[in-house]
Amino acid sequence: MKSLFSIFLVIFLSKGCSQEQDLSDVKIIYGANNRGFHRTIQIEKDVFTVVNKRDAKPVLVELTDAQWNEIGKLYSKIDLNTFNDLEGPTMERAYDGKPHADMSIIVKDKTYTTKGFDHTIPPAKIKEFVDYINKLADDAVAKNPVLGSYSVEELLSKDVSKKEYFISFDADKVSGFMGCNMYSGTYEFQEETISFGPLMATKKYCENEMENETSWFKVSSEVSTFKMEDKTILLYDNENNLVLKATKK
């Protein structure tokens, strides 16, 4: 009888350390930040949102029933009794080697928060959960549609298709050639908006080839939106005037 009671007590205590899979009264917030990275994942009432840029609006991620069930299953393994004491096994965040991450769980009127950890290296006790929600966030991030190198066909209503002008987009860098000097700079895009930072260029002078280049350097700072039409990119200014048209090589 005593041994039977002991078994019951162990089962009872082990259940007390975990939660049900029902997330209806639970809010989960995961955040990771450093100078070059930002991510916020929020899960609340069957809504999964992700923010991947500072000051950006949350993006709703549509999850399947199987994905929601997996989140619930992994959440049920988390022990809230020890959650506030969880801390990562590494300290790369101390020298900016990794973004600083933490996670909070709000159940009704009580909040539980980790002591912090390196992004992608969470405490072992929540590793499955953290890895899974970050994978969902990674899969939801739209691939950059503008990546690639393009031959410029039109610049400020001028047909320049006979020229050898081009513009190339890497992950966060734009570069190209508009007749005389090679140039490069940074750019940012989100959905249909795009903006260019200051463009740096070599200092050559090319007779009869400077007008278009100078115009591009001036107007590039006014570019605000873009459209993709198959392999063609269209760049527009703040007044929706077409600035540049180019087709992927």
Rank of each mutant, 00 (worst) to 15 (best):
V107P: 01
E207P: 06
C180D: 04
T49D: 01
K135C: 06
G16R: 07
T202G: 06
K2G: 09
N238V: 12
D170N: 14
T114H: 00
Q67K: 12
F8V: 12
F217T: 01
I78Q: 04
I11V: 15
Y75N: 04
K53S: 14
V61A: 02
S76P: 09
T202R: 03
S220E: 08
V146P: 06
F177R: 04
S18Y: 11
N34P: 09
E44C: 06
A101N: 05
C206G: 09
V223E: 06
R39D: 03
G179H: 09
L4I: 11
L23K: 03
V219M: 11
L156P: 00
I43E: 01
I121N: 13
N240L: 13
T247D: 07
W216S: 00
F37L: 02
G97S: 08
H38Q: 13
P122T: 03
M178A: 14
T82D: 12
E222T: 11
S168Y: 03
D55M: 09
V174W: 08
Y187F: 14
H38N: 15
S195R: 08
I28M: 10
L155S: 02
F217I: 02
L156Y: 03
D172W: 01
G31W: 02
Q42P: 00
L80T: 02
P99K: 00
N69A: 15
D55G: 04
M228Y: 03
V223M: 10
Q21F: 07
S24F: 10
S161P: 07
M103R: 02
I167P: 06
V243Q: 04
T232Q: 13
S175I: 07
N81H: 08
S151N: 14
K135V: 08
G176S: 10
K53Y: 12
K127V: 05
E188N: 14
S224L: 10
W68S: 02
